[in-house]
């Protein structure tokens, strides 16, 4: 039930932001479309803790702040590499074991790897993720596992 309320709130917010016309007729049409989409999603059985991860909503903002800091730092690193000669690149390509147990944790981990430029997850399996990194530093940072630890705390 909480998940249904959450998806209805989110859809209503998106509708209100995108519409910009607030007379009774259009508001009721919007409400009808929100109900219709919620009903469809319920019928498709996709309204659950995976599509509406509200149990994460408390810890997520802290993780996002940390991730934004990481994204800015790694962006500057890659931008510096672009303006340097080619020899300063040291590409690595290897498997990393992952400790997250749930699918949600694995997806968050792989997405975070992708969001920071300089590291890219190429393949994701049950127990490992295949990572391509642009520099030795980027790979070593992942091997040290601060990101993995933080994602694990989210689960």
């Amino acid at each position: 039930m909480r998940h249904i309320i959450s998806i209805a709130l989110m859809l209503s917010l998106i509708w209100l932001v995108n519409s910009g016309h607030y007379n009774p007729l259009q508001l009721s049409l919007g409400a009808i479309s929100v109900f219709f989409v919620v009903w469809l999603a319920h019928r498709m059985d996709v309204v659950d803790h995976e599509s509406q991860p509200i149990h994460l909503s408390k810890q997520l903002p802290i993780y996002y702040l940390w991730l934004i800091k990481k994204i800015v730092i790694s962006n500057i690193d890659v931008a510096r590499l672009v303006w340097q000669p080619k020899t300063s690149m040291t590409p690595h390509f290897q498997r990393l074991l992952i400790s997250q147990k749930t699918d949600m944790g694995r997806v968050i981990y792989a997405n975070s790897i992708n969001l920071t430029p300089g590291t890219l997850s190429v393949d994701l399996k049950d127990d490992y993720v295949l990572v391509h990194s642009l520099t030795t530093d980027g790979m070593e940072e992942l091997l040290q596992g601060e990101m993995a630890q933080r994602v694990k705390e989210l689960e």
Binding site: N75, A79, V82, M89, P91, N114, P117, G118, L120, L134
Partner: peptide, 9 residues
Amino acid sequence: YTRIHAAGI
């Protein structure tokens, strides 16, 4: 593979 990183910025 290195180009994907550049596109990521």
